[in-house]
């Protein structure tokens, strides 16, 4: 009798387990589908606007290229031809940079860029990047400083992390006027690490703070003034998301802009913040 009851209970447990598993799977599937739908809607909305911007940003150099080459062809001057070819090559390089950045961006946003996560010594990496950029900052009469908590280890892709900070530094070096200060702070905050890159430059108006992460967004409406692909901050955002992090910009206590990047750190790997 007991045996029969036991079999019955076991059978019920098994059925319950199967049903529970099926229900969980279905819910996961539904959540996935909803997420995909949301992503699709947002991609379609943004892609039209992006397409316009890409067309604009590639048409400008194309126009210049065409005029330059036509002008050279009207003349029979080998010195002038050489100068034209050199300008053409520079312009091709600029366009190549834009295309490369766009490609990286779409791969990152579509989630097809492979992320190679390993334990990264974030403190060491940030010190290295500061060391890499200090001479360039000094050349522009800028002070670049780091206040980095020791032994910050995170699970992330070293190359992606480095590209995020290189893009942020490139941006700072371009926009902070000579005599300015750029400060990088990194510390552990609960299950995250928070890294701030801030400056005492002109800052970013409140209404522009979300827009600057969009493709080809520039504070300067004339667009061509600053050079660059206009995609650096979009890349920062896309790479941060690939690493399950996020980036935002606020006003810095130094008076300029503060980019705040939050990244998850596996708790076991994370040391206590320094006192």
């Amino acid at each position: 009798m007991f045996g029969v009851w036991l079999s019955l209970v076991l059978l019920l447990c098994l059925l319950g387990g199967v049903a529970g598993f099926w229900w969980l799977q279905r819910r996961r599937q539904q959540q996935k589908e909803a997420l995909l739908r949301r992503q699709l809607v947002s991609v379609t909305q943004s892609s039209r606007q992006t397409g316009d911007n890409i067309a604009h940003d590639l048409r400008t150099p194309l126009t210049r290229l065409r005029a330059d080459v036509e002008d050279a062809l009207r003349h029979d001057d080998s010195e002038m031809h050489r100068a034209t070819l050199e300008r053409v090559l520079d312009e091709i390089q600029n366009m190549q940079n834009i295309v490369n950045a766009l490609l990286a961006l779409s791969q990152a946003e579509a989630g097809v860029m492979r992320v190679r996560k390993k334990t990264v010594d974030l403190s060491g990496l940030l010190e290295e990047l500061i060391e890499l950029y200090i001479p360039s900052a000094e050349e522009r009469q800028l002070t670049l400083q780091g206040r980095i908590a020791p032994n910050l280890n995170i699970e992330a892709d070293r190359q992606l992390l480095a590209r995020i900070f290189a893009n942020l530094f490139d941006n700072e070096l371009k926009y902070v006027p000579a005599g300015g200060t750029i400060l990088l702070t990194a510390l552990a905050s609960g299950p995250h690490v928070e890294i701030r890159v801030e400056d005492d430059g002109p800052g970013i108006p409140v209404e522009m703070r979300d827009k600057i992460f969009e493709r080809f967004a520039r504070l300067d409406p004339s667009r061509t003034l600053s050079g660059g692909s206009g995609l650096g901050l979009s890349l920062v955002k896309a790479f941060a998301q690939l690493l399950q992090g996020e980036v935002r910009v606020v006003e810095s206590s130094l008076g300029g802009a503060a980019f705040i990047l939050t990244l998850p750190a596996s708790a076991a790997e994370l040391s206590k913040p320094s006192p």
């Binding site: 940079n97 950029y133 290189a166 893009n167 070096l173």
Partner: peptide
């Protein structure tokens, strides 16, 4: 394995 925009 990437090229920064600055002439570092």
């Amino acid at each position: 394995f990437f090229d920064p925009q600055t002439n570092v």
